[in-house]
């Protein structure tokens, strides 16, 4: 990738004898939402901690906008916003007071700080509860306030570590919409989650990490192709199903067709491309289509294929 916003190269981190991250490398482009998926203990949190400048890598390099990320007070940290998995806010203080504190750590002060506080509270939908104590917030509101702190100093890269854990569907949707909006406005996002549908919805690209290494990376479709998974179109018909199956096998893009009584399962690389020809074939054969169900292989299938089904602690 030319001129990425974030470039991580060959990151290594050991804890005594255990290697938590063993040569992780990935790039994130400007405005790209990159999902980092992996089972528990795969090295996600360690990788994020290194990218956020909390943890020093034993080897490798991290550059944001070409600036090296260090654990010191270097300028690269001002380009990064971290939204940790925990609600890292002072519970006795209000949202505004929390934002004032973290804003000052980010070199913001005075009217500039106040403007940013107003703006981020608007983004996360907490403007009307700005002066309430965090303790008095619901779980979803705490999550949104947690995100507001990460956005406060207008970072170029936002790191979101499982930001929707334990929130109600409304708050979750609000959070995801906010991230989509921010991504659309050019903010780069490094996103970790255990919810595959979130990654599918938000992420332009996904890296799957296991045992401290990136085992696969790409768009959803690239990952699906990588593991050899295909779309499946299930068609219920009334009429000569065998004749329709035979005709469908001649359609370009169809890999194979399985027929069981009045049901056909059509395997294809791209269900959207073959759906119309299948309907036309049914028309030609005088078969009535009574139902269609398209199943695309999802990230969960890819994830389980790559990381296995064994339980992780």
């Amino acid at each position: 990738m030319d001129d990425p916003l974030l470039r991580c190269e060959n990151l290594v981190r050991r804890y005594r004898d255990r290697v938590a991250v063993a040569g992780v490398g990935f790039d994130i482009a400007r405005g790209e939402v990159y999902g980092l998926l992996g089972p528990n203990g795969a090295g996600k949190t360690t990788t994020i901690s290194m990218v956020a400048g909390i943890l020093r890598p034993d080897a490798g390099s991290i550059l944001v906008e070409g600036l090296p990320v260090t654990t010191g007070a270097g300028p690269a940290k001002q380009l990064i916003g971290l939204v940790p998995q925990d609600i890292a806010l002072y519970p006795d203080l209000s949202a505004v007071e929390n934002l004032q504190f973290f804003g000052r750590l980010q070199n913001l002060d005075g009217s500039r700080l106040q403007q940013r506080i107003d703006a981020v509270l608007e983004v996360v939908g907490l403007a009307d509860r700005a002066h309430d104590r965090i303790d008095d917030y619901s779980g979803g509101m705490k999550r949104r306030a947690n995100i507001a702190v990460g956005l406060l100093h207008q970072p170029h890269l936002l790191i979101l570590d499982e930001p929707t854990v334990g929130v109600d569907p409304q708050s979750r949707n609000q959070i995801l919409e906010s991230i989509e909006t921010l991504g659309g406005e050019g903010l780069s996002v490094l996103y970790t989650t255990h919810y595959m549908e979130e990654a599918e919805r938000l992420c332009d690209r996904v890296g799957i990490i296991d045992a401290g290494k990136i085992v696969a990376e790409g768009t959803r479709r690239e990952l699906v192709a990588l593991v050899g998974a295909h779309d499946r179109v299930h068609v219920s018909v009334s009429g000569d199903a065998a004749a329709l199956a035979a005709r469908c096998r001649t359609i370009a893009g169809v890999i194979e067709v399985h027929q069981t009584d009045s049901r056909l399962e059509i395997v294809s690389d791209d269900a959207g491309r073959v759906l119309a020809p299948v309907v036309e074939a049914a028309d030609v054969e005088g078969v009535a289509v009574t139902g269609v169900d398209v199943r695309e292989p999802d990230l969960e299938a890819v994830f389980l294929h790559l990381t296995g089904k064994a339980l992780r602690d």
Partner: peptide, 8 residues
């Protein structure tokens, strides 16, 4: 930890 993610 979050504070350490700031330029601190």
């Amino acid at each position: 930890r979050r504070s350490l993610a700031s330029p601190v």
